[in-house]
């Protein structure tokens, strides 16, 4: 099977979601990676170095400066003519673009692929991950899907060996959609979606100011910081820190959460974590049902003690 994977990238770098999606794509067949950008060279080079990539198709065009679905979808649909399957990561990028491209091709889409169950069969979560379902793409139809990146290990990178094919696509692009700006929250902390350790805070943290103790603890462990929706809604932290059904689905080795009750919509975002540690003052909080290690108590008393204990361990 010929598989086309659409790369996610920014500022000349591949997003970690690309290498993870590649592992899924390689289960289906031979993989080419497509890059859409206004300046493709740096990213193309990086994509060519990923293990298992046959060709890199680089489409350089001024309109591709920002990832707008209305602009990318017709180009993807055009490229897809030569492929049996098209995949994108199930990040907000892929979620926005892939269905638009699939509809242009007139085929259904499989969202959030967790596993490849058969030649044209895939496992995916529904009901906030409370149920898994297997779906089959009808014979003769192109496969379109997004990859649940937390379910896949990244393909390793080596020497740039895949060939890079610069392609011009004869597709007319719409002008009805215009990029205005991106307000990316700046942080020197590790990326939430790929960090091995994540520390999260919820409504129980109480305020934006109080969140400093979460950041401080995270920095001690070199961890990324996450949050519940309640913490985001209350304005304690920006939206890109939300973990859960409608936020980020993550799979760190260690997830520690403070003052989070454990609503199903939150828990669905951390089910693949290695070890879950929960601190909550309510002994009946549902988070304890799934936590590997739970400690009942006030986070404001526990966190300082925990910091001390960790300092003692380190020295």
């Amino acid at each position: 099977m010929k598989v086309l994977l659409i790369a996610e990238h920014a500022n000349g770098k591949l997003n970690p979601s690309t290498a993870k999606s590649l592992t899924c794509a390689a289960r289906l067949g031979d993989v080419d990676i497509a890059i859409f950008s206004d300046s493709v060279d740096a990213v193309a080079e990086k994509a060519a170095a990923l293990d298992g990539v046959k060709n890199v198709i680089a489409v350089e065009r001024a309109e591709n400066a920002n990832p707008l679905a209305a602009v990318l979808a017709p180009q993807i649909a055009k490229l897809a003519e030569d492929y049996d399957a098209v995949l994108m990561p199930s990040t907000t990028f892929g979620k926005d673009v892939m269905p638009r491209a699939a509809a242009l091709m007139g085929v259904p889409q499989v969202s959030d692929i967790m596993d490849v169950a058969g030649e044209r069969e895939f496992q995916r979560p529904i009901y906030a991950g409370n149920v898994l379902t297997t779906v089959k793409v009808p014979d003769g139809q192109k496969i379109c899907g997004t990859v649940r990146v937390a379910s896949w290990q990244p393909a390793p990178a080596g020497e740039a060996v895949a060939s890079i094919d610069k392609r011009e696509l004869d597709v007319e692009l719409p002008s009805h959609t215009r990029f205005v700006k991106l307000e990316a929250s700046k942080s020197d902390r590790p990326d939430l979606q790929s960090a091995p350790v994540v520390i999260s805070g919820g409504r129980g943290v109480g305020s934006k100011e109080n969140f400093d103790i979460i950041y401080r603890f995270a920095d001690k462990l070199g961890a990324a910081v996450g949050a519940s929706r309640a913490a985001v809604d209350a304005g304690f932290v920006p939206n890109d820190m939300q973990v859960g059904q409608t936020g980020k689905i993550i799979a760190p080795d260690l997830y520690m959460c403070f003052g989070i009750s454990g609503a199903i919509q939150h828990v669905t975002g951390i089910k693949d974590a290695g070890t879950i540690v929960a601190v909550n003052k309510d002994p009946d909080a549902p988070i304890f049902e799934i936590a590997d290690i739970g400690l009942v108590g006030d986070l404001f008393e526990i966190l300082p003690k925990l910091e001390e204990a960790i300092d003692a361990e380190k020295s």
């Binding site: 007139g106 085929v107 259904p108 409370n130 779906v135 089959k136 793409v137 089910k271 739970g294 400690l295």
Partner: peptide, 22 residues
């Protein structure tokens, strides 16, 4: 249009949580 065929349902793998420390 063509539709996906549902070929099965399964419960998600269960996490064995529930341990507390003092």
């Amino acid at each position: 249009p063509p539709a996906l065929e549902n070929t099965g349902y399964a419960p998600p793998p269960k996490r064995e949580g529930g341990k507390k420390v003092e």
